[in-house]
Design a binder for these strands. Sequence first.
DNA 1: AAAGATTGATCTATCAATCTTA
DNA 2: TAAGATTGATAGATCAATCTTT
Lengths: 145, 145
Amino acid sequence: VSDTHELAEALRDFLLRSHRLMDRRMRAEGVSLARFKLLSFILREQPVRSTDVATAFGYSPRTVTEALDGLEREGLIARQPDPVDRRAKRISITPVGETALRASEPLRDRLRDDVFGTLSGEERAAMAAALAKLNHRLAALEAPE
Amino acid sequence: VSDTHELAEALRDFLLRSHRLMDRRMRAEGVSLARFKLLSFILREQPVRSTDVATAFGYSPRTVTEALDGLEREGLIARQPDPVDRRAKRISITPVGETALRASEPLRDRLRDDVFGTLSGEERAAMAAALAKLNHRLAALEAPE
DNA sequence: AAAGATTGATCTATCAATCTTA
DNA sequence: TAAGATTGATAGATCAATCTTT
């Protein structure tokens, strides 16, 4: 297939650089992008279990425990024993965590719009459609039974 | 700006998952995707310095030293003192490294074509054009003087 | 046996600091 | 002073193994 090489490179380049930019700026005024996403999810779905986070984000269990440890260490979330299942813990966001989340939200939105705003509505739609195809194909390759 | 949220999520989701897939499969028969890229560059440009690698990939110096340490530990590359600049080292690929690189190449190409092959030529071209715009915009934001 | 959570070892990446040489 | 390379501390992600409870 022609020209997939350059396309893949450009895609990876964009991810790496946009992630670096957003992370750097967001961290300076509150929470990193990765933490922002976790906190958003926890706020929306709380009380939530570790395994729910892993499923929702497609992360490995290890990644989630590690991330939650960090958030808990800084008092942004709390873990409490699940009253009905003694294997599980219920994760909730703290007032400190909610404040940090709210503080970072406008910056995140502004940066994202700054970047994606260079595309026209048609271009964004075309890109979304292409990504949907790609993600669908990827799902097929991941589970090749 | 409308619908940038879903677009950004889809993009991030695709990159995370495609990277995981390629890395898993490639590692099983040779080298990871990240190492593959480094080895390709070193093979093409050798003898090369650490700072050249950092510049070419947009990586931090720390990332490069760490990566080269790993490659050297497994005998895929060698570092030698630069004869004319005693601060520098010249990095070259070893026969073992070249073999590992060649072994992984077909797999990498096949996987990439498997994924991107679901898009038509027009779709790939549109996506490449959009990414070029995005990367250009990102560069402007990175250096905001 | 399977599910929920954690831990150990490792890779890829960052920032910030340091050391040597130019 | 600046450039080339390294090191220390840390974040974010993987796989594989373990421990407790269902």
